[in-house]
Design a protein around this nucleic acid. Structure first.
Lengths: 166, 166
DNA sequence: CCAGACTGGCTAACGCCGTTAGCCACCCCC
DNA sequence: GGGGGTGGCTAACGGCGTTAGCCAGTCTGG
């Protein structure tokens, strides 16, 4: 585990526990028992830290949903479960543009593969399904749905549209 | 137009023209020909400014999509058109939690009404449709789709699932 | 007609932020 | 045993949101 990964691990823990405003260079450094400028020996910038968190999120999420198999409902459940278990990491990862050049090769594809499989290989259907899941999660995490709405039912209604054969 | 609304108008213009990092209290003040602390005579905090922008976005977007009528494709096109015409305002508005207490009453409902209508009155279908549109827009604005993907086709594929009768 | 309050500007300052420059102790290898 | 890389440190800069405190103008009630 490189020093950079240690920083990222601390950042992830801090982000999830106390929210994005707690993830400052000074705080990260303190958590690692050092001073803020020393962080720059392991990490290029704060943006670099966030890019690292984004990649971590992609990896974790890809792993989580690839265990679900090709069933649409199982896949959706896994997606939703991971996102709500790591809400701040999810929002940080999807909230910033994807830096493909800073990403280890293959990460993006392997995270997308289960979705494409569940969509029967149709890339447009896969993207639509992904967008549906992301939209539901994102709106839920941003408290956009009226309080008391039964989101289980909403997910069922949403997936039914996709499950129905053409 | 109250002084607060003037601040919000400048903030919106600045946000869309130069991005969120340009919307600072000092910059806003300069744009209005005053010093930063004077802003606090018209606005409670920067968070208050962002809440105001969120409400503005909701109002504008509600107006934009209510002109589309009950047709699913027209509604989706209007939604997508507004979001891509005001990408940073869209992301700011959906990126922060909805402060219902700071919202003029009725704003949320009237923005949601066209979607519910297009979904045939089914609230779960309406939320799913909303999430689908939001997800597509949000992922596109965050550069998550592979470059070169034909998003028009993706939107068509997505809407077909919802248009198909049960 | 004038006194008082209210409005809306100002300067100075605080504590935080990310980041850079420059320094130095340690350790490993030739 | 000396040289260079590694990984800490302090000091500092400019920018951020925000507060305190001040004051000129205006408007209003007696």
């Amino acid at each position: 585990m490189s020093r950079r990964d240690e920083v990222l691990a601390v950042a992830e823990r801090l982000l999830e526990a106390e929210g994005p405003e707690a993830v400052t260079m000074r705080r990260l450094a303190a958590e690692l028992g050092m001073q803020a400028p020393s962080l720059y020996k392991h990490v290029r910038s704060k943006d670099d830290v966030e890019a690292g968190l984004q990649e971590r999120a992609l990896l974790q999420m890809g792993a989580a949903i690839s265990t679900a198999g090709p069933d649409l409902h199982a896949l959706a459940a896994a997606y939703r479960a991971w996102a709500t278990a790591h809400p701040r990491l999810y929002r940080l990862a999807t909230g910033r543009p994807l830096r493909r050049d800073a990403l280890s090769p293959g990460v993006e594809e392997s995270a997308a593969a289960p979705v494409v499989a569940a969509a029967g290989g149709d890339e447009h259907r896969a993207r639509a399904l992904w967008a549906l899941a992301h939209g539901l999660v994102d709106l839920e995490l941003a408290d956009r749905f009226p309080p008391g709405a039964d989101l289980d039912l909403t997910w069922r209604a949403a997936l039914e549209a996709f499950a129905r054969p053409a």
